[in-house]
Amino acid sequence: MSPLVPLGIAVAALGLWLGYLLFHESRRRANSRAAYFNAVKPLFQGGETRLQPTGFPRMTGRRDGLTFDLQAIPDTLTFRKLPALWVLVTLPEPLPLDATLDLMARPSGNEPFTRFATLPQSLPTPPDLPKEIAVRTDDATRIPPPDLIAAHADLFQDPRVKELVLSPKGLRIVILAEEADRGRYLIFRDAEMGRTPLPPSRLEPLLDRLAAIRKDVLALKDMP
């Protein structure tokens, strides 16, 4: 028997083993992405989850009579230092507002989750907010009063809060949930995120904050 035969068998066996490992890892990653919102489901009274083309879920659920929408959006654009995973927490309940007000921390103009850059009017940063917060709107004459924003300015004390949107269609907070592991990304260009489900302790304060902002907006129409 040729000495090359055992070598060929060994190479084939190694190839099969590596293929199995790659298949197993790919399946594990897909399962972890799909389960990203599993841990926060107990925060809601019923809900629906559907898988997005990114492999991450989108979830809607009811909490204290309000409907919330959760989205996880991976951002792997090369101009970022590290790929990021953004979580959009939306309260899509109509509000008595006449304009959209968008507050964005450190905008780059390339955020994949927002229409901030398309809003036509730029406003000065309110004194209650950090200087790195930029503000835009589609009608500066109809935005909510400054006291409303001041009451919730502490939201941006969390450096992972990226955006707050108030609009006639509802409210949204966007957070930086995760960044890719620096070492694995720099060496292997591995941008995998979402291995660990979003913890309820991270989401619950955002749900409560959106409900509080909504309550304050509704109170405006009762003011003389």
Rank of each mutant, 00 (worst) to 15 (best):
P3Y: 01
G8S: 14
A10S: 08
V11Q: 09
A12S: 14
L14V: 13
L14P: 06
L14C: 10
L16K: 01
Y20W: 11
L21A: 15
F23M: 02
H24G: 00
E25W: 00
E25G: 00
R27C: 02
R29P: 00
R29I: 00
R29M: 00
S32D: 11
A35M: 02
Y36K: 06
Y36N: 03
N38Q: 14
V40D: 01
P42G: 01
L43R: 01
F44M: 02
T49F: 02
T49Y: 01
R50E: 12
R50L: 12
P53L: 04
P53W: 03
F56S: 09
F56M: 15
G61A: 01
R62Y: 06
R63A: 02
R63E: 01
D64A: 15
D64P: 12
G65A: 05
T67F: 13
D69M: 14
Q71V: 12
A72Q: 09
T76V: 15
T78Q: 12
T78M: 11
K81P: 12
K81N: 14
L82D: 07
L82Q: 06
V87S: 05
L88I: 06
T90F: 04
P92F: 03
L95T: 01
L95Q: 09
D98S: 14
A99T: 09
D102W: 01
L103N: 02
L103I: 05
A105H: 09
P107T: 02
P107Q: 03
G109N: 07
P112T: 07
P112C: 08
P112S: 11
F113V: 06
F113P: 07
T114P: 07
R115E: 14
P120D: 05
P120M: 07
L123A: 02
L123D: 03
T125D: 03
P126Y: 00
D128V: 13
K131A: 13
K131D: 14
K131F: 13
E132N: 14
R136D: 00
R136K: 09
D138K: 04
D138V: 03
D139Y: 02
D139Q: 10
R142S: 10
R142N: 12
R142C: 08
P146E: 01
D147T: 15
D147M: 13
D147F: 15
I149F: 07
I149R: 07
A151C: 07
A153D: 08
D154Y: 09
F156I: 04
F156G: 09
Q157D: 15
Q157V: 06
P159T: 02
K169L: 10
G170T: 11
G170I: 05
I173Q: 11
I175A: 05
E178Q: 13
A180R: 00
G183T: 07
R184L: 15
R184E: 12
L186Y: 15
L186G: 07
I187S: 14
R189W: 08
A191L: 04
R195Y: 06
T196S: 13
P197G: 07
S201G: 11
L203C: 09
P205G: 12
L206Y: 14
D208G: 10
R209V: 05
L210F: 03
A211E: 11
R214Q: 13
K215D: 10
D216S: 15
D216T: 12
K221N: 10
D222P: 06
M223D: 10
